[in-house]
Design a protein around this nucleic acid. Structure first.
Length: 559
RNA sequence: UGGGGCGUAGCCAAGCGGUAAGGCACGGGACUUUGGAUCCUGGAUGCGCAGGUUCGAAUCCUGCCGCCCCAGCCA
């Protein structure tokens, strides 16, 4: 159950409850998260992680981390470490239950021998192309391999020699003997082992034959005592083989595979190949570019693991393919950050304001809350002086109807400070650009309120010119212009040319100067920001994680 | 054209024969020293379509339609 009282896990939780009630696994619940170490984890994986770890935890069970490392030609240790780091970051823990499918290569080999002895597996000399030809098509049955009826002894001998490296790569395979006419193509004598002379990142050159996923996965589950093997929809047609294997091998209390729909988000790509293209062709700065949907990218962008977990819980678990609104993730993020992020005043595009009736050289300090949502976050002092910076967007020379900010002759409140009224607009005589505003303040409005109780609609943020630091701020937007990045067939064409805007002349209030990498803040009236690792001793760099909801923008858009 | 799966508001998603939860998004309004947050408030006479069973169907039956997945010695 989550905070809304909604059950997490949908139909899978129902199945688990039934199994507990019927004592199917002696009341045990044991899942596993089985990543292949051939890439970085992305937002899509987080749903599987939340389901695998979350459902085990919710039912008093355990979840193993198991690297599905059965294909050394695409895998690498480099990914093992990053995957573990990302899972921990999300907040899940596998304790001492870290496994690798490769841990079971010996046992898997023994099981293969058993299959051969039972007459349920054979060594096939067909080439990859021939196997494909013999397999038939979606509508036509396949044909039996001419090697299908070899004797048990011959198969045993050949398989042994495959293992010893007597045959070249790809020359032979071990196949299950099931049914070449099955309407389910997976059941048409699937390949169990292939010859591959590639050193494995864990077993080195001990093996030159490697098990396929179809063969290794059910058995790895069985060996670990997994009860519920949760995976995505595309493995549904593999389930008959999963069950077949465990049955013919007479595995007691066989685990059950249950499939659910993967998480898709609008404006987001999760295909490994495509993400790689973005990185390799330089469309983003790397796998941790803040615009990437990888967990390292989201982390650098400032997303909280809690927000991602919340999204996964709220999105639910079902079997219908779906695409979740990216706005839903942003909602979860804002909700989390709103409660936790300290507030700060930062002027992104500075416009100088001179308060003409404020004594030169005078400095006052105003107290302001660190987080209005959390009184325990306390308050801080912000220095105020005669020259300040405000946001260029907070001034309009000829404002439209509902503009509540500064304009000639208009009064606004400077957050936690004074009311000021714009008396004069100073422009660069050659360009016409507004370079400075000359305003007056009302000494009676100290702290942001006047004795006469006069109403001021607009409150804007500011920073004292002499008491602020320069900083760089990177504004991010969706990486793609279209909800479906694949729209039109070419995702590169849908890239958002303005997904990154770098602002180098921002002014941050003093309190921010001591922030360190990874610290998150709410810049008042702008959004949530995080300190980027590119920051240096004398120059902080912030990434905009997500903007605040902007109803002014909507009002503007309407008119 | 074989097999498997799925179709409840713009997007997720409850519901499991008794008369359509909830969230996001969107629209009103209140409040507000963040045009933030918060709080009210609005939306399916309808559950892919068509028949049927039943006093009663999103829920059961039949037929149709649409979308997704499968022909790697990838996972």
């Amino acid at each position: 159950m989550n905070e809304e009282g909604i059950k997490f896990g949908g139909f899978i939780q129902d199945i688990i409850e039934e199994d507990i009630a019927s004592n199917r696994y002696g009341g045990r619940v044991h899942t596993r998260f089985p990543p292949e170490p051939n890439g970085y984890l992305h937002i899509g994986h987080s749903k599987a992680i939340c389901i695998d770890f979350g459902l085990a935890e919710a039912n008093g069970g355990l979840c193993n981390l198991r690297f599905d490392d059965t294909n050394p030609s695409t895998e690498d240790v480099e990914y093992v470490e990053s995957i573990m780091e990302d899972i921990r970051w999300l907040g899940f823990d596998w304790d001492d239950r870290l496994y690798y499918a490769s841990d079971y290569f010996d046992q898997l080999y023994e099981y293969a021998l058993q299959l051969i002895r039972k007459g349920l597996a054979y060594v096939c000399d067909l080439s990859a192309e021939e196997i494909r030809e013999y397999r038939g098509t979606l509508t036509e049955p396949g044909r039996n391999s001419p090697y299908r009826d070899r004797s048990v002894d011959e198969n045993l001998d050949l398989f042994e020699r495959m293992r010893k490296g007597e045959f070249p790569d790809g020359s032979r395979t071990l196949r299950a003997k099931i049914d070449m006419a099955s309407p389910n193509i997976v059941m048409r004598d699937p390949v169990l082992y292939r010859i591959l002379r590639v050193p494995h990142h864990r077993t080195g050159d001990k093996w030159c034959i490697y098990p396929t996923y179809d063969y290794a996965h059910p058995l790895s589950d069985a060996i670990e005592g997994i009860t519920h093997s949760l995976c995505t929809l595309e493995f549904e047609e593999h389930r008959p083989f999963y069950d077949w294997l465990l049955e013919v091998l007479e595995i007691p209390q066989p685990p059950k595979q249950i499939e659910f729909a993967r998480l898709n988000l609008t404006y987001t790509l999760t295909s490994k190949r495509r993400l790689r293209r973005l990185v390799e062709d330089g469309y983003v700065s790397g796998w941790d570019d803040p615009r990437m949907p990888t967990l390292r990218g989201l982390r650098r962008r400032g997303y909280t693991p809690e927000s991602i977990r919340t999204l996964c819980e709220r999105v639910g678990v079902a079997k219908a393919n779906s695409v979740v609104d990216y706005a839903f993730l942003e909602h979860c993020l804002r909700e989390d950050l709103n409660k936790r992020a300290l507030r700060a005043m930062v002027v992104l595009r500075p416009l100088k304001v001179v308060i003409t009736n404020y004594p030169e050289g005078q400095v006052e300090e105003f107290e302001t809350e660190n987080n209005p949502e959390d009184p325990s976050a306390g308050t801080r002092k912000v220095p105020f002086s005669r020259e300040i910076y405000i946001e260029r967007d907070d001034f309009m020379e000829d404002p439209p109807k509902k503009f509540f900010r500064l304009a000639p002759g208009r009064e606004v409140r400077l957050k936690s400070a004074y009311y000021i009224t714009c008396q004069e607009v100073v422009k660069d005589p050659s360009t016409g650009e507004i370079v400075e505003l000359r305003c007056t303040y009302d000494p009676e409005s100290r702290g942001g309120m006047t004795p006469d109780g006069r109403r001021v609609r607009g409150t804007i943020h500011w920073v004292s010119a002499a008491h602020s630091h320069k900083a760089e701020v990177r504004l991010y937007d969706h990486l793609f212009l279209t909800e479906d990045p694949e729209e039109g067939g070419d995702f590169i064409a849908n890239l958002n040319p303005n997904s990154l805007e770098v602002l180098t002349d921002c002014r941050i209030e003093l309190a921010l100067a001591e922030a360190s990498v990874g610290d998150r803040f709410q810049f008042l009236r702008h959004g949530y920001f995080v300190v980027d690792p590119d920051s240096t001793e004398d120059r902080l760099v912030f990434n905009r994680t997500v903007s605040l909801r902007d109803t002014w923008q909507k009002i503007k858009d309407k008119s």
